[in-house]
Amino acid sequence: MSRKSKYSLLAVALVALAACGSTSDTTQAPGKGKLTYLGKESIPKDKAEMVFQQTCMACHATGVGPVILGRDLPPEAIKLFVRHGNRAMPAFTEAMIDNETLDRVAEMVSKSKAPATQAAQ
């Protein structure tokens, strides 16, 4: 893919994500009682799943970053976002997320369905 077409794709995806926006209020419903903390059961065994859960979703499922699930984002656009970052989003090197893992993560995000809580927003 030429550099020009890559950036065109990035621009299209940027517009799509801007339309999605981030959730305007990330505070959960006021709850009483105990805090819940994650334990070892939260650690995925699969490498791509681990990147998805422990890196992508740490921002994109908490309202910090824009919603990315269930948006039919093209895998190539997702990979460009990851490698270049977008505005406040950090960029990730090949040393952090290798190309093979990124391919799988991009597929997972691209084919994801919107979670129930997201659809309700």
């Binding site: 505070t27 006021p30 105990k34 805090l35 309202g63 910090v64």
Partner: peptide, 28 residues
């Protein structure tokens, strides 16, 4: 205290950080 807030943010992520748990909430 947590009895007042439960899992509500930003108390939740502060509680996570003060016990060394992983959170990226402050990227907000």
């Amino acid at each position: 205290t947590e009895e007042d807030t439960g899992d509500r943010e930003p108390f939740r992520y502060r509680a996570q950080l003060m016990k060394g748990d992983m959170t990226l909430q402050e990227f907000g």
